[in-house]
């Protein structure tokens, strides 16, 4: 009974670790060829992509009541959008 969610959550952990490693590698090896603002926006979007999985899978909000799930989904999208907008406001 417990096996199925554990396999799912272990796969989510692998995804989170993989995206973290990819973000770090992206900063170190490819950022020179990409405009800073674009690279930074991608890195922030990836961070919020990870937080969505932590909220929905680890904190089990996937099965939460609709208002709670809506709050976390909207929080992620709005905060990520505000931060990326601030990045693009720089000269």
């Amino acid at each position: 009974m417990v096996r199925r969610p554990l396999i799912r959550q272990t796969l989510v952990w692998l995804l989170l670790v993989g995206v973290t490693a990819a973000s770090w590698a992206f900063t170190h090896y490819t950022i020179s060829g990409i405009p800073t603002k674009t690279a930074s926006s991608v890195l922030l979007a990836l961070a919020f992509f990870k937080t969505r999985f932590i909220l929905l899978e680890f904190m089990e909000l996937r099965d939460a009541v609709l208002p709670a799930r809506l709050f976390v989904e909207v929080w992620g999208v709005v905060v990520c959008a505000v931060l990326i907008t601030l990045l693009w406001m720089s000269s």
């Binding site: 973290t20 890195l43 937080t51 932590i54």
Partner: peptide, 19 residues
Amino acid sequence: WHLVDLLWVILFALFYLVG
């Protein structure tokens, strides 16, 4: 504990990765 993890994920991106 997951919330603490989540906040670190964003702090890591903001302080260490964003150029």
